[in-house]
């Protein structure tokens, strides 16, 4: 009597609307995180202490504070200084910035993993810095990073329920509004949990495949 199947089935279409937003936010957030992470990793390599020190501190700061609070800042503080973002844009930027500080470490490890000899050889054959990066370093550094990056994108996917706090109608928010409207919590909450569990279990296999295909950083 606790679990009502017909109710569970009846709410699937509404939940599906949320799933779409959840997936969209994850994909966009992953793109932002990949770009932000690369930018942080490159800026931290700068020899100018006025660049690398502040970037390092900011990345450290973002990583040490909760994503939820960062979302609140993007959503509540920015409009006060004249920047009004739609909830989804604020959410994607928040996810991207937060996870960008994590992916920066992946890029750093991947770039450090390219043997010194490759840099020296690039210099020896007179490649410009941009040629060295795009032709020599990145093609060797990126493949081993892919599984580690994917791991963070999956972690980000599991954090998307936080977006409900800034009024985005993703899966968790749809479930909460169904629950509050019908005063039935057990079905929507459990279905959201099962959804995340199933996707995570599938992604474990995906990650293993990526690791076999591309190897891992540090091995």
């Amino acid at each position: 009597m606790l679990w009502d199947w017909s109710f569970a089935i009846s709410i699937i279409p509404t939940l599906w609307e949320g799933v779409k937003i959840t997936i969209l936010a994850t994909l966009l957030g992953s793109v932002v995180a990949a770009v932000v992470g690369l930018a942080i990793a490159l800026l931290r390599r700068s020899r100018n202490p006025l660049v690398c020190k502040p970037v390092a501190f900011l990345a450290e700061f973002v990583r040490g504070t909760p994503l939820l609070v960062q979302l609140y800042v993007l959503f509540y503080v920015l409009p006060d200084i004249g920047i009004t973002l739609s909830p989804l844009v604020a959410g994607v930027i928040g996810l991207g910035l937060h996870y960008g500080t994590y992916t920066a470490e992946v890029y750093r490890a991947g770039i450090d993993n390219v043997p010194r000899g490759q840099w020296e050889a690039a210099k020896a054959v007179n490649l410009t810095p941009s040629q060295t990066w795009t032709r020599i370093i990145m093609p060797q550094a990126v493949p081993p990073m892919i599984p580690a990056l994917a791991n963070y994108f999956i972690a980000m996917f599991k954090e998307t329920p936080l977006l409900s706090a800034i009024t985005i109608l993703e899966l968790m928010n749809q479930a909460r509004s169904i629950a509050n409207f019908n005063y039935r919590y057990i079905e929507p909450m459990t279905m959201v949990g099962v959804f995340f569990l199933v996707i995570s279990l599938i992604s474990v296999f995906g990650l293993r495949w990526l690791e076999r295909r591309y190897g891992r950083v540090g091995s």
Binding site: E159, P161, Y185, M189, L197, S200
Partner: peptide, 23 residues
Amino acid sequence: IEFFRGTSVFVQLFWAYFVLPLL
């Protein structure tokens, strides 16, 4: 391990707060 790593802490918190009382 797989269960708690696979579902997000947010969902677990809401489940503990809203569903456990029903059980």
